[in-house]
Design a binder for these strands. Structure first.
Ligand code: FES
Ligand code: FES
Lengths: 151, 151
DNA sequence: TTGAATTCCTACTAATAAACTAGGATTTCT
DNA sequence: AGAAATCCTAGTTTATTAGTAGGAATTCAA
């Protein structure tokens, strides 16, 4: 499994916030309830997202979280990298330092670089708005403006 | 890190066997020494590769392992899947069963499918012969036939 | 025919990482 | 004042990874 719960739950959170975009702050408890996840765990995940500037928070009663910019401006790759670290297949690709002693000889490293590139091509080409659109398509919801009023 | 030591060491083993292809059986200890890895650990990794038919073994003195077919016929993806299992980002992609309760609504799943596809495109398009070629290119070795005589 | 080299197999252990939980301090609205 | 929320640190539990240990079975070669 490439993604741990950090990445997977984080993506669900961000999708939920994207669906709520423009409607004010959304408390974490609501997100946790909608997705049937532990809100205390989600707390830990949203913290780095806030510190990275992807979401903003409002403290106190009637507070909550919202996206810091519009969904189309947030790439899935950003979210994943913040929560999971890089998805490189081996450390040497990550840090530029060879893992094995035979630095110059290493043909596996070339492979790792290609895998990394393949993954990044996907996750950096998809943004939250794309996922929102997918969400509506999946639910046959043609009336996009009112998409969330029945939730 | 996408690949654990199982996949990474396994790839190195298989590359070593590919470099040795056509020269008879190679004892695991030699592979371990060349790559500075624990031979008892590698034992565990080569077992499933043999059971999957990618390598053949010869027991007893002067025995060892060799590729069951030519390097160009063994895709990197096969090796990785045998040693790591599928590289899917989430279980639902793997088993076809939804992870979350909101099966139909799930937009993250579409993302996971695209990531999976991106990875498979890479690892199934590269075979061991490609890695052997890379290896020789990296080492500026124009005399390919004699590549291993100095090791 | 004996001994060394090797694969093969199962089970165990140690270390690390993942997945949460707990508790409380702080902020803000009503 | 009190409720609703974020924020922060530190635990705990569980699962996975990475590796060891020990020995049985096989085969070559002297
Ligand atoms: S440099 Fe990364 S495995 Fe060799
Ligand atoms: S179906 Fe896989 S996360 Fe929803």
């Amino acid at each position: 499994m490439i993604l741990s719960t950090r990445g997977r739950y984080g993506l669900k959170m961000m999708l939920e916030l994207a669906l709520n975009y423009g409607k004010g702050a959304m408390p974490l408890k609501d997100i946790a309830n909608k997705q049937s996840l532990s809100d205390t765990y989600l707390e830990q995940l949203i913290s780095p997202l806030r510190k990275s500037g992807l979401v903003t928070s409002t403290r106190g009663a009637q507070g909550g979280y919202e996206l810091a910019k519009e969904p189309s401006g947030i790439k899935v790759g950003e979210i994943i990298r913040i929560l999971e670290g890089s998805l490189a297949p081996a450390e040497c690709v990550l840090e530029g330092e060879p893992e094995c002693s035979k630095a110059d000889y290493c043909a596996t490293r070339l492979l790792y670089e290609k895998i990394t590139e393949g993954i990044n091509n996907v996750i950096d080409s998809i943004n939250l708005q794309d996922m929102v659109d997918d969400y509506h398509r999946l639910n046959n919801n043609t009336n996009i403006k009112r998409r969330n009023e029945d939730e």
